[in-house]
Design a protein around this nucleic acid. Structure first.
Lengths: 360, 360
DNA sequence: CTGAAAGCGCTTACAG
DNA sequence: CTGAAAGCGCTTACAG
């Protein structure tokens, strides 16, 4: 309906009378009506409301009141067109179905909101095609800044965005400070975990993923674990359970690793929080008890991990905190401010709970 | 840097030479450069790329090639300003920290993306103030449509948005079809659960929330449970554990309900998925076993609920599916299309698992 | 401290 | 089928 009105209003050239009528119906005050109401130029209204440029206190007051009275809401589109800044930060999430990315999104959201930016979320839906299309759209929207919640399948697209003037922030490859990469931050947690397991006497560890390394983060973790565990004198193996979901199938996929006579792994490390419940069901089905038969650790924490019996040990990294830090830095850069200080994000850590014990 | 260039470019009036240089650096092709490249008017370029209006096949071809060659990405801001449509759908989430809202967001995202809309997320951060400010921003961005993932604290703000021409979709109060409200959809699941418990011989049920009804959805659920359970001849009580997090505190809060000599509740119903792990830890701490001493059911399902031992019975409603349905309908309305058919979202249902058994 | 005016990059009704 | 031109609502360098 109101769209109808607007369509009529658009043809102002054609018929100013209808246009005026339509405008009255939609009630959308623009900067000119505010200027008229306050008896000043639009320039002054703009200066007052944006806070840029000096305005005499009395004038300022009148403008604010006029804006209030008319319930004026400036058009973001018009401002963007003029200033070439959209005040939008985009977040590219590989898959919203994967809960690990939500804290990151939340962190970006929090900071962006506080700085007057809006947040555009894009969901890659685990698909190269969708991701590409989505990034193209983000470019057309010319977000001021794009935060990546996880690895992108087609990094070439990112360069396109960068060339178009978008500030792209990739936690896997942070500009400036390599110590702030997810990998670097997570490493201490992995090391702690390996040391704790080794100290308990574990020698054989199995790292379990769903897709065997198509995920960049999963692959990197495996690299870290492999080298750290090797240094500690243990043997690590990588188990890929593929698409298995049902407990019997998962049990079957895990059995070679955890029940091999003589050289079974005595500790299972789950690559991502979302996979943990599936593995736990598989273990239960296989009759493998934790921690008696096999210790269990997962990457990523939650209330459920803690509530499980035994409570699940985790390597956790606060992605919310990381997102807050990175977003602050990015927005400061955009504003041309000095790089913000602020506490650096805390590194990952190992939280030992009931699911870890000595090897059988 | 590129921002710097742009700033220079902006002063085209002042110094066209510098401007031209800057434009070359930023590489941003606009519709005029495409028109020039293809040897047509901007009108024709616009018509070709938008698909509105007829263009001769040969011309079309030339335009597409020129656009491709120049890597043209039309400015969404300019288009919005002109057409008064932003092609953005906003999603208002009461709190991103609450995982129940994520499937809804994902559903909106999926449909929006498929229809060429972008998604702006707003996080209320459980705060009236933040929520208000956020809604004001969504209005300034003039989203075409606003989907509410949950109840909004200040419904008055919504009317403001509606007056500004935004299509606001509230799953708690769907326009047109009241059978599509979250409440109506969830009811069958609640009824099933109550019937199942009653059939097993339960008479006393406790419904547990964290904040005792500040949540609109929690309050409604309690209303439904109370009346259904009453009809079945049982007694229902409402327990509010407030902010308790530690197992001992939660245990203490639950004890009056589940351990009252003679008239203890024999079934505990948890109001929301996120609260379940906390309650389970409390029960474990209190030495209450499930289902032997007390059956346990929660609203909202997940892999963790299923993996828990005993596996947790749930009342589940697919909010992803609901979001998909509502978003499709909303976008069809915006496009002026006929209301889409499509399967109606499935109602909630009760999934009985190990945590429910006969009363002690 | 303030105003008049140009222009951001599109789309669309109109005329041909 | 195509082009010339107006205008969407802002912001900002310039002039006063």
């Amino acid at each position: 309906l109101s769209r109808e009105c607007k369509r009529i209003a658009t043809s102002k050239a054609v018929n100013p009378t209808r246009s005026a009528r339509a405008a009255k119906i939609v009630q959308k005050a623009d900067i000119r009506s505010v200027a008229r109401e306050a008896g000043v130029s639009t320039a002054t209204v703009s200066r007052t409301l944006s806070g840029r440029g000096h305005v005499a206190p009395a004038t300022r007051q009148r403008v604010l009141e006029a804006a209030e009275r008319l319930d004026y809401s400036p058009s973001a589109a018009a401002a963007s067109l003029r200033t070439d800044r959209t005040m939008i930060v985009g977040v590219m999430v590989p898959s919203l179905a994967n809960p690990v990315f939500v804290p990151f999104l939340r962190g970006v959201q929090h900071v962006a909101q506080a700085h007057g930016y809006a947040v555009l979320v894009a969901d890659g839906e685990r698909s190269l095609e969708v991701e590409r299309q989505t990034l193209t759209r983000l470019r057309a929207r010319s977000v001021d800044c794009l935060m990546l919640a996880g690895a992108v399948r087609d990094p070439g697209k990112l360069d396109e965005l960068r060339e178009a003037g978008v500030l792209v922030v990739d936690p896997d490859h942070p500009v400036g400070d390599p110590d702030l990469s997810v990998e670097a931050l997570e490493r201490p947690g992995t090391v702690e975990m390996c040391q704790a397991l080794a100290a308990l006497g574990h020698r054989r560890l199995a790292y379990v993923t769903r897709d065997g390394g198509s995920h960049a983060s999963g692959r990197r973790r495996w690299g870290t674990i492999e080298s750290v565990w090797d240094q500690l004198g243990g043997e690590a193996q990588h188990v890929n359970i593929g698409g298995a979901r049902d407990a019997p199938l998962v049990a079957k996929a895990l059995r070679p690793a955890v029940a091999a006579a003589g050289h079974a792994a005595t500790a299972l490390v789950c690559s991502t929080h979302g996979l943990a419940p599936t593995l736990l069901r598989g273990l239960t089905h296989a009759g493998v008890r934790s921690p008696e038969d096999c210790s269990f650790v997962t990457y990523g924490d939650s209330d459920w991990a803690e509530a499980y019996r035994p409570s699940i040990s985790v390597v956790s990294l606060d992605l919310y905190e990381l997102a807050v830090f990175l977003t602050r830095a990015a927005l400061a850069l955009l504003a041309g401010d000095d790089p913000v200080g602020g506490a650096a994000p805390s590194p990952g850590r190992f939280v030992r709970r009931g699911s870890v014990g000595p090897p059988p």
